[in-house]
Design a protein around this nucleic acid. Sequence first.
DNA 1: AGGCGCACTTTTTTT
DNA 2: AAGTGCGCCT
Length: 664
Amino acid sequence: MTIDSLLSELNEHQRIAATIPREHALVLAGAGCGKTKTIVARAAFLISSGTPSHRIQILTFTRRSASEIVERVRMHLGDSAEGLKASTFHTWCISLIRRAPAAFGCKDYSVIDRDDQLQLFKVLRGKKASSQLPTAAQLCDLYSFARNTGLTLDATLKKNSPHSYSQKEQIAQVMLAYEARKRDRRYLDYDDILDVVAQQLSSSPNTRSWVASQYDYLLVDEMQDTNPLQWKLLDPLKHQVTLFCVGDDAQSIYGFRGADFRNVHSFSERVEGSRTLKLERNYRSTQEILNVSNWLLSESPLKYGKELIAARGASNILPQLHTFANEWEEGRWIGDDLLRRREAGANWREHMILVRSAFAARVVESSLLAKEIPYRFIGGTKLLESAHVRDVLSVLRLVANPQDEIGWMRFLTLWNGVGELTANRVIEHILEKQTLEECAQIIKGETKIPPAALNVVGIVKELQNQVAMAVGNAVRAMEEVLAAKYRNQEWDKRRKDFRLVEKLAEKHTSILAFIEEYLLDPVHVSQVERLEADDAVTIITIHSAKGTENEVCYVVNVSPGAYPSQYAQGNDDDVEEERRVLYVALTRAKNELIVTRQGYRLWAEPRPSLSAQRKEEGSDSPLYFFETLPDTLFDMQVHKHEGWTPATNSPQNALPVTVGIAIG
DNA sequence: AGGCGCACTTTTTTT
DNA sequence: AAGTGCGCCT
């Protein structure tokens, strides 16, 4: 396919965006208006008009959209697309660090993920010495928020946790200790990866020009979700590299990570001489679906000024709104509805179920399992984040970095007779040593860990360039102890994951690269297995669903107390972010939108309006987005309680073990 | 004292 | 699914 035929598929505005001359540009595109298509066309246009493909770097939020964009450009251009790179901000930065570790002051550093951070914070916070201190997880979030926004601890606490403000001094101490520990152990957490690069880009002219000289263009997807730390990366490059950014303020849903949707509005001030373009024609959905989405945004006190028009026009199918007595009936009905559609000839893969949280997916999941409907779940615990896989990978981490305290803790406490305290004592001695052999001697002297287990570390070291074999050996050596640890926690199911890990490892020639790649961009179990069963329903968290679409979309549990969630109540910014989350969910549907909610009694009986009640309390942020829903937008149906006990709870309905690719 | 198993709660969202 | 708390065992 030629570039001309690709451009002829675009509408006028998309084509202008894809072919603008070399200048900074921001493309504001509504949901379904062809954002990805425009980025793909832009990259293809640049390459076919002479920019070498390796001088274009595309930055996206997920591995999935990164590979999709590259794949589509390749489809249009063939070999000349070779060398085009798309990655997340984090993978991009770590690849820069790995190519010039000294320039960033990060020689021999290893990357730690959130779980590792938690371990450190837990240790540093101390057990229950001061239980008023925020939990390790809260400290972790506060720390990360401050790093991503560039706010001081003081400002972060005032904004996110005024409740803990009085403990500011102690919190500061824990955080400083965390930073000292990271330096000591040569750890880089997620935020360090970006910050280290950003810092050097702004302070070192040499490093800046080294990086800038590699690229002519940076194409940034999902610009509305970039935060100040990410901007700190782009800003120093803007004089030498041309920015092409695409985003939608109404789809900004990463405020908890420091993103501010207003940032896309200030783009033109921050980037001198930049152009802003708009895409407003929606090619994804029917007008009936857009009417619901438009209504939701129009109710916001914020003025998005967005009214999506469907290029496809109306379809005469209204979205459906179903109200159930409880979550089990809701889940059961969705399963039944899927079966009906399947019987009518639809494929499983045309259906997507959108949930707010991984936790919220559980009821739906068990309903699909019970009805033997194949599904994949995107958004829960990732393969390499699951406890049993981390256990095995701890050995690989030790080989990559014998000073890895977190890795040692994980490995040592696996064995009988070694708990947290013993492990701590041993680790103190280990950290004084340089080689694995010396470490092994210490462990032999101080614990009863079987020598055979320690040999694995040596074997893995020998195999460090054959990662898949290293994984295989580690698994075999640890199988017994793991089987004991997880004997009551679906061991048979967990055990299968090791094969998948080996499969992933086959592509890599170094342990470090293997671990890093999947820490930064974790793979979901069901993604690995997709090859085996292609036709499945998708269950997906809304945050993971950004950028995706499907013929039929179910949006689950759009109930009072859930949209907006109680968590957001009282904070107008948070409530509006919740509105955008729901907006993202509603705009995923191409042909049919089915919204479900619980607690029909709330609507069956007359009662004082929730919003009126809310006004009396002195807040104008809504308690429930659908409180004022006009009844013309949906086909509404209330399902009466049928008086049965939830089958999902009864023990005789133990979850079947082998149903398609169903992996939670 | 340290380790371990059991029963219990508690879940936003992600790199 | 993982963290916490409690009581028992070595």
